[in-house]
Write a protein that binds this DNA or RNA. Structure first.
Length: 684
RNA sequence: GCACCCGUAGCUCAGUUGGAUAGAGCGUCUGACUACGAAUCAGAAGGUCGCAAGUUCGAGUCUUGCCGGGUGCACCA
């Protein structure tokens, strides 16, 4: 039995007792963790609610404390509960049987991360998570990292909470951004597909293809503005973009072939970048297939359901639009959203509705799938394809999700709202609840970080609290540069502390620490908070950081390396023995200030499953990040006390309790960190 | 103008479906190592939770109004 199950049992008891003794049917029984351990392990503030309900139904005024007293006896008969106190105005405070709980917790299996792989017989509703979705025309930047890390961590949380997931990284391979880079290659550099291939092959490791495109894209932007970054775009030059875009949508021509080469190459670069952070995908759905396979079918459904209408006159004459009544229109802004332009092309929002309908199993047509690439751990990521000849018969069953989570920055909340409404209008049976916009705020840089990455700042910018990224000003940080920098910083620390490690090991540890610093930094804030990246803050070991959490786990592990063989098993046997004398002595270990602190650590470690469930339902990875930190903090506090030194402990029972608690804590902490995508190294 | 998000300690932020004395980190000050790993820990100082009403046994949390900040409102994505 874990804490969640016990809580559930106790809730049921309270509910039954309320019905039995007071004739009140409670829909839910809120439970909470008391503010201090002295007040117990679990509290039910249920007597207040009952007093109110009794008064409502019978008019009789009952004192909450008296009600709590009556419920007390009911709860005390539970095996795991040592005693119950009525406190304050009527709180029911429960104290667990510490010896019994320790043996239960010590036996419980660790939360398993990522093992809940799908199988053909899996009946669980599928949670679709789309994240990353970076335009495949240049290197990924720091803002994309927040998207990917939030998305990937959310996937890990869902899996750890027992859910079935499918991870998508949408590839907009026929959009404006790809077209612009193609304009650069074709019109600025006068290159053919063969030239681009040759160029790609000639590029060195420190300036790869995605970096090249990053610069080329900036040059194209400048070209559209006639060479002046502050002037307007020249309509004549923009015609090249439109021509290119048309060629991409038509397909089967040299321009489209070049675009396909660029997009596919950049997708590979993005996958490489994300893979450095342990991020993987199941499927790469491409816009080209959404257009070819889904659009016409989805369009018919949208028309048939009345979700969209044709405008015969007015501002949107000739367009198919989705009416948005709740948004007031004004002279300047039309509230209705255009889905199909008057020239017959589809807007991004239109394609997104079609794609979302497919993800939810509401469009019957299907794509072809081909394996795109397989990583070192034999995980294959698939890609959609229009070419039936490439279709793999062994492709997994994609789509047919029950819920869709789209990790997209908060600036796109309006179009996401349109998509949600559109889907619900076409498929009322899935409704709006099936579409979740997992929005997050932007990432800026601290002035110190910007300068560390080689950006030139004005004196004004240097004095501000953060520097905003700006593509136009060239103020941008490539994800790989950022990760490189983090790894270099950590490498210096590792070299100083463990000069005897092999070069390879040092690099490995530095990499692990860098990933922990970056992922933790991106995850510790709630999603709707703007974050300011700073190397010092991310890589500190004394504050709220990944390395701090790792240090606690590494220290815990080092104890177990020094224990005698079999001692851990012996300790487990001792704490799980039913012997009343032993359990009395175990209970004693948890008494007093020192024991209370140890007990608080134990119950905190026991809350992982509960935290995972909350993080999953709130779609908020920062809950888990905060939990990991507090567990690491509590462990460090307990660990630091001289009285708690395991290896010096002479009393056999106390030693066994310390071993069991620390073993449980390190397991829970490791699971929590694993779920955050942070791996615990042997040394650091 | 309309919609969404945010105002909590000097700074940056947490705060579960409304619950007990509002918490962290940084910064400041004072302490603890020939170490089960000090990349750590302990202690101190620091708050009219933007303002004002309302609902409630109970409000940082819910409602309304105001003040202040951010974002979005294309036949771009």
């Amino acid at each position: 039995m874990n804490l969640i199950e016990l809580q559930q049992t106790l809730r049921e008891r309270v509910r039954a007792a309320a019905a039995d003794k007071f004739g009140v049917e409670l829909e839910q029984v809120p439970a909470e963790v008391p503010p201090r351990t002295e007040l117990g392990d679990l509290a039910f503030p249920v007597a207040f609610e009952l007093a109110k309900r009794i008064k409502q139904s019978t008019g009789e005024k009952r004192n909450p404390r008296a009600i709590a007293e009556e419920l007390r006896r009911e709860l005390e008969s539970t095996e795991e509960v040592a005693r119950v106190e009525v406190a304050g105005a009527g709180y029911l405070n429960l104290f667990f049987d510490r010896a019994r709980m320790l043996s239960r917790l010590a036996e419980s299996p660790a939360v398993e991360v990522g093992v809940a792989e799908e199988s053909a017989a899996d009946e669980r509703p599928k949670r679709m998570v789309e994240h990353t979705s970076v335009n495949p025309n240049k290197a990924a930047h720091i803002g994309h990292l927040r998207n990917s890390v939030i998305g990937d961590t959310f996937v890990r949380i869902l899996r750890a909470a027992g859910e079935l997931t499918e991870v998508h990284n949408y590839i907009d391979n026929t959009g404006v951004q790809v077209a612009d880079v193609v304009v650069g290659f074709v019109h600025l550099e006068r290159m053919t597909l063969e030239d681009v291939r040759a160029l790609d092959a000639s590029l060195k490791e420190d300036y790869p293809f995605d970096y090249y495109c990053w610069d080329l894209y900036a040059r194209v932007g400048l070209f559209y503005r006639g060479g002046d970054p502050d002037s307007k775009e020249d309509p004549e030059r923009l015609k090249l973009r439109v021509e290119t875009l048309h060629a991409l949508e038509e397909g089967d021509n040299p321009t489209a072939a070049l675009a396909d080469y660029v997009a596919t190459r950049i997708v590979n670069c993005h996958l490489d970048t994300m893979s450095r952070l342990g991020i993987k995908y199941d499927l790469l759905p491409r816009e080209s297939e959404v257009l070819h396979f889904l659009w016409s079918h989805a369009f018919e459904r949208m028309k048939a359901s009345g979700a969209i209408r044709f405008e015969a006159e007015g501002r949107n004459k000739g367009c198919w639009v989705m009416p948005m009544e709740t948004h007031e229109s004004s002279d300047e802004h039309e509230a209705d959203k255009v889905i199909v332009r008057s020239n017959g092309t589809v807007t991004y929002t239109g394609k997104d509705i079609a794609y979302q309908l497919w993800k939810l199993g509401q469009v019957e047509l299907d794509f072809y799938f081909k394996p795109f690439r397989t990583d070192s751990e034999a995980h294959t990521v698939w890609m959609t394809t229009s070419n039936a000849g490439e279709a793999s018969p062994s492709a997994p069953h994609f789509g047919d999700g029950a819920t869709v989570y789209n990790v997209i920055d908060s600036r796109q909340s309006y179009p996401q709202e349109v998509v949600k409404r559109g889907v619900a209008a076409v498929a009322p049976q899935v409704g709006e609840g099936a579409s979740v916009h997992l929005s997050y705020e932007m990432v800026a840089l601290s002035p110190a970080a910007a300068e560390e990455l080689g950006l030139e700042l004005s004196t004004d910018e240097r004095s501000r609290t953060f520097v905003e990224m700006s593509g136009r000003r060239g103020l941008g940080v490539k994800a790989d540069d950022l990760i490189d920098r983090l790894e270099e910083n950590e490498y210096r620390e590792v070299e100083e502390r463990h000069p005897s490690l092999s070069e390879e090991r040092k690099r490995e540890v530095a990499h692990t620490l860098a990933v922990s610093a970056l992922r933790y930094f991106l995850l510790k804030w709630t999603r709707n908070s703007v974050i300011v990246f700073d190397f010092k803050e991310a890589q500190t070991t004394t504050g709220e950081s990944g390395p701090y959490c790792l240090y606690a786990a590494v220290r815990a592990n080092s104890i177990f390396r020094k224990l005698q063989t079999g001692e851990l098993e012996g300790a487990r046997r001792l704490v799980s023995s039913a012997d009343t004398d032993t359990s009395a002595r175990i209970t004693q270990v948890f008494e007093g200030e020192l024991g209370g602190e140890l007990w608080a650590l134990t119950t905190l470690a026991g809350r992982l499953a509960e935290v995972l469930a909350q993080a999953a339902s709130a779609a908020e990875p920062s809950h888990l990040a905060r939990y990991a930190l507090s567990l690491a903090q509590s462990f460090n506090t307990v660990y630091n006390r001289r009285e708690n030194r395991v290896l010096e402990e002479k009393d056999a029972v106390r030693r066994a309790v310390l071993i069991s608690v620390f073993d449980y804590v390190r397991k829970q902490l490791t699971s929590a960190l694993d779920t955050l995508g942070i791996e615990v190294p042997e040394r650091m």
